Simulated scan of single mutants.
Amino acid sequence: NAWVRVDTINGVTFTRDANNNFVQAVNYAFQAGVRDTLVISDATNDASLPVELAFFRGRSNEGKIMLEWRTESETNNAYWLLQRREITADELEKINSGLMKLSDVQSAYVTVNNIRGQGSKTSATEYSQMDTDVKAGKSYAYRLADVSYNGVITYHDDIMIASELPKKFGLRQNYPNPFNPTTTVKFELPVAAKVSIKIYNILGQEVYTLVDKTMGGGFYEAQWNGINKHNAAVASGVYIYRILATSLEGKQRFTQTKKMMIVK
């Protein structure tokens, strides 16, 4: 019997023949004289059957995109490829006006993640994946591909999802609260703005500058680890944090104040 190479992808073991093609493993053995090398004999070709995909959809979720899909059955499905590409403003206008198909978007697909499949299964399976590497206000095309144990890749139809911008300025309550030693402050910008978030003690004295820069519209968060502007730990007690955001053209101005408590 001929020996063939073993590859592991996303926790699934594949083998390749002498021509570097995927094949299905039948019998496992260790080749004599080769230390710590798993090899396979008696490999046979595997003809895969398609996955029955019930739906593939997505939605914007505070600057991230949640993807969900369900299969009614799977046969020899080793893993999924979830892929994304960005749609330009010009392409989006043409798609919405019917002058361009989603499949004609020019940017290359990038792989968001590999998700392990169910192998062979005759009942339904639901999947979900959060894509955090997106920009608020941008539109994206997503596609799924199922990859069989013998390496056959089957692509499914693209879908288009917009990562929505916040509808208004906002400052969230920090969490955890009370906290020790670190807390997170979330805030939203519907447009690009100059942003300042400062922390004060109960006497109104400035303790620390959390954010001070120009930022595009989107959902953001910043962490405070309980230190002051001199890099010294602050005492337990109530502190006040305040956001001041001014749109770049100066027409919109937002300010809001909230309290937080550090307990040591």
Rank of each mutant, 00 (worst) to 15 (best):
S41T: 12
S41Q: 06
A43P: 08
A43I: 07
T44Q: 00
N45L: 04
D46Y: 08
D46S: 10
D46A: 00
D46T: 07
A47D: 15
S48G: 04
S48E: 00
S48K: 07
L49G: 11
V51H: 04
V51Y: 04
V51N: 04
E52Q: 13
E52N: 14
E52D: 09
E52C: 00
L53W: 12
A54T: 04
A54R: 10
F56I: 09
F56T: 07
F56M: 07
R57E: 12
R57W: 06
R57T: 05
G58V: 01
G58A: 06
R59N: 00
R59V: 06
S60Y: 11
N61F: 10
E62W: 02
G63Q: 00
G63K: 03
K64M: 08
K64G: 03
K64N: 12
I65L: 09
I65F: 02
I65S: 05
I65Y: 08
M66P: 00
M66F: 07
M66Y: 03
L67I: 02
E68Q: 10
E68A: 00
E68C: 02
E68R: 06
E68P: 04
E68K: 12
W69C: 03
W69N: 01
W69Q: 04
R70F: 02
R70W: 11
R70D: 11
T71Y: 03
T71A: 03
T71S: 08
T71H: 08
E72D: 11
E74K: 03
E74Q: 06
E74L: 08
T75Q: 07
T75A: 13
T75I: 06
N76D: 01
N76P: 09
N76Q: 10
N77H: 10
A78G: 05
A78E: 02
A78S: 08
Y79F: 14
Y79A: 07
Y79G: 05
Y79C: 01
W80N: 07
W80R: 02
L81F: 06
L81M: 11
L81Q: 00
L82R: 09
L82S: 08
Q83K: 05
Q83F: 03
Q83L: 04
Q83C: 05
R84H: 10
R84S: 06
R85A: 09
E86H: 07
I87E: 07
T88K: 04
T88M: 08
T88E: 14
T88Y: 15
A89P: 08
A89F: 14
A89I: 14
D90W: 13
E91Y: 07
E91S: 09
E91N: 00
L92P: 01
L92G: 05
L92H: 09
E93L: 14
K94S: 12
K94D: 15
I95E: 07
N96G: 03
N96D: 15
N96P: 05
N96K: 15
N96L: 11
N96Q: 14
N96E: 14
S97V: 03
S97G: 04
S97W: 12
G98P: 11
L99R: 15
M100F: 13
M100R: 05
M100K: 09
M100Q: 15
K101V: 11
L102V: 12
S103L: 10
S103Y: 05
D104S: 14
